[in-house]
Amino acid sequence: MKRPTQMDVARRAGVSRATVSHVINGLSGGRVPISPETRERVWQAIKELGYEPDAGARALRLGKSRTIGLIMPDLYNPHFWENAEGVEQEARANGYRLLLCSMNLNIQYGEDAFKDLVGRRIDALILMGSFVYESEEARNTLIRSLERGLPIVEISDRVTKDYLADCVLSDYRAVAAAAMQHLIMLGHRRIGLIYGVANSSLAEDRLIPYKKSLQAVGIPIDEQLIVHCGPTIEEGYRAAIHLLQKPNRPTAIVAINDLLAIAVLRAAGDMGLRVPADVSLIGFDDIAIANYLIPRLTTAAKDAVQLGREAVKLALARLRDPKRPRQVIEVPARLILRESTAPPSC
């Protein structure tokens, strides 16, 4: 069946096509007198014919698409979905829809997705993760997009002076130090780290405080207690088995995110070890399931939903005032003590 057009609606309502366009887009602004009865006939004709305005054509006419793009780094980590939930909540509350793309922890794919999204008719773009810092191509795309006036907001754990994108900033440095201090105060001296990242520069806001906290109390850094692995839960599981099989295994483990902490919890159980009686465990991100594990996971939280909402607020403010100074909003993280840490048993 042929898709109905504005001309079809105009014939059914007995008006001109221009009148149909004014009614749909609300562009008359009082300059074109359209009676309530005429508006009602147009909307009735639209309903009867099943007419749907073409979003692309409408965006061209109005100069906006009411769409915000979002690039998230990993579809498998619930933490990033919580960020996306906040973005979607705030976008919907302001009459915008979300166009989402995942880079799947692949910098090359992230570059391609970035270039594709900025080439579309989106009103703003939100970037999650730090792939922009790892890719010269992505940085160039970012700079060009900012120069042509596209509002771009980063949700990040670092801020740079190289370009002027607005930023919602939250990092784990202070909280990671507090987590290490908590374990050290409990009496732990052999503390392992599951460092599961897609590339070596990620999660430094956990690695650096881990090392500095040990050094601050005179505990030598044992590189064998730092297990580098990939970011998946399976890779975290294998890393935890490797760490817990050591003859002088750690009495506590810090995993750089809750997904990897869950892998540690499973590995410990498979080896007949109890958390926290035999090994204490701390994660990061406070994903929803963290409070429902056995034991409930001690972790750190950034309030991922709030980060997403703040990012959209910055993007919409930039749309309203393109010349405003660069904005950086900091959202503090916090340590949440639950049931997965205790003094060492020996």
Rank of each mutant, 00 (worst) to 15 (best):
P4F: 03
G14S: 09
R17M: 10
H22D: 05
L27H: 11
G30K: 15
E40D: 13
Q44E: 13
A45M: 11
L49M: 12
L60F: 00
G69F: 06
D74Q: 03
H79Y: 15
H79S: 11
F80N: 05
F80R: 00
E82V: 08
A91Y: 01
L98G: 07
S102P: 08
Y109D: 09
G110T: 14
G110W: 07
M128I: 11
S130F: 04
Y133A: 12
L142F: 04
E154F: 14
E154C: 12
I155G: 03
T160G: 06
D162F: 15
V168R: 05
V168L: 10
R173T: 13
H182A: 02
M185E: 13
R190C: 09
I191D: 02
V197Y: 00
N199K: 05
E204I: 08
L207Y: 12
I219D: 00
Q224H: 13
Q224P: 01
H228E: 13
I233T: 02
E234W: 07
R238V: 05
A239K: 06
N248Y: 15
R249K: 14
V254F: 15
A255Q: 06
I256F: 02
I262T: 08
A263P: 03
A267Q: 10
M271P: 01
M271A: 07
F284C: 08
I287P: 07
A290C: 01
Y292Q: 05
Y292L: 03
R296G: 04
R296T: 09
L307V: 09
E310W: 09
E310Q: 10
V312D: 05
L314T: 01
L314K: 00
L314A: 02
R334N: 06
P344Y: 11
S345W: 07
